[in-house]
Amino acid sequence: MQQEPIDPAGITWMRVSPQYAKVRMVGWGISALITLVVLSVPLVLQLTGVWPGYPLWLGIGLPAIVLIAELIRLAVIPRQVAAIGYAERDDDLLVRHGLMFQKVLVVPYGRMQFVDVAVGPIDRMLGLCKIKLHTAAADATAEIPGLPLAEGTRLREQLAARGESRLAGL
């Protein structure tokens, strides 16, 4: 995995399954389709003569621009997925996200309040799951999507065990 300038030194990141890109793409497909359909409504109305006053260039231009933007988003998805990484250290878990807006989060095991494992319908088809580590602080919720089920289970057990042994108050 490529090291970004923001990444702390001396960390070996584990990456999530590249399969996860498919999950993201399905999500992208649904949202892009809805947006495009909604934006194309005026064009259809204009062409069918219901709303003749609507300018044709706007009717074509707006969906076209959005379509380009959505296609760029689609193209970036595999790289975004590749940018997700996590690393287990002795006392804490590190999670990184993002290409454009990069973010690295460290959450101490002892601060962990509970762990969620979530599996969506497409996740299930691909044998993936998502782990969410909650702390008392809402903005310190570490989320690792796109883990293979076995790895997700291992990580959950590992987190629970380490959380137990390093449990701190609040």
């Binding site: 300038p5 923001i6 702390p8 454009m100 807006f101 990069q102 973010k103 690295v104 989060l105 460290v106 959450v107 101490p108 601060r111 702390t135 008392a136 602080a137 903005d139 310190a140 570490a142």
Partner: peptide, 9 residues
């Protein structure tokens, strides 16, 4: 509780 390191474009 946790530490965040972030950077925008």
């Amino acid at each position: 509780q946790g530490i965040r390191l972030s950077q925008g474009p």
